[in-house]
Amino acid sequence: QKLMYQPGALATKVVCLTQVVSEDELKDDGEYEDILEDMRQEGGKFGNLVNVVIPRPGPDGQPAPGVGKVFLEYVDVDGAAKARTGLNGRKFGGNIVQAVFYPENKFAQGDYEA
């Protein structure tokens, strides 16, 4: 039996949505808030959300780690698993979202680049 290790395949409480938002959208405070709200609403349908993190570029537009991703942290793996299945392949503002599990330890450390 082949043991597969694929990043994002191991179930965790944190779901990472990739290719969701552009740097430009995040620079604008209003849009950033809107996106945050959209994420809370949609993400909340799958389970109890603990935290939503959307990395933003620095004030001078310098690139920051994890920009373009959205992290949804759930109370349990169950919620995260439902969200991953439910959101993967959905469209957000024209982008087709990919949803993967994200290592909890890295998320806790604020490492958004795994």
Binding site: D34, E37, D38, E42, G86, K91, F92
Partner: peptide
């Protein structure tokens, strides 16, 4: 009234 950016679950 703001429309969510999430497309309907098509």
């Amino acid at each position: 009234k703001r429309k969510s950016r999430w497309a309907d679950d098509e």
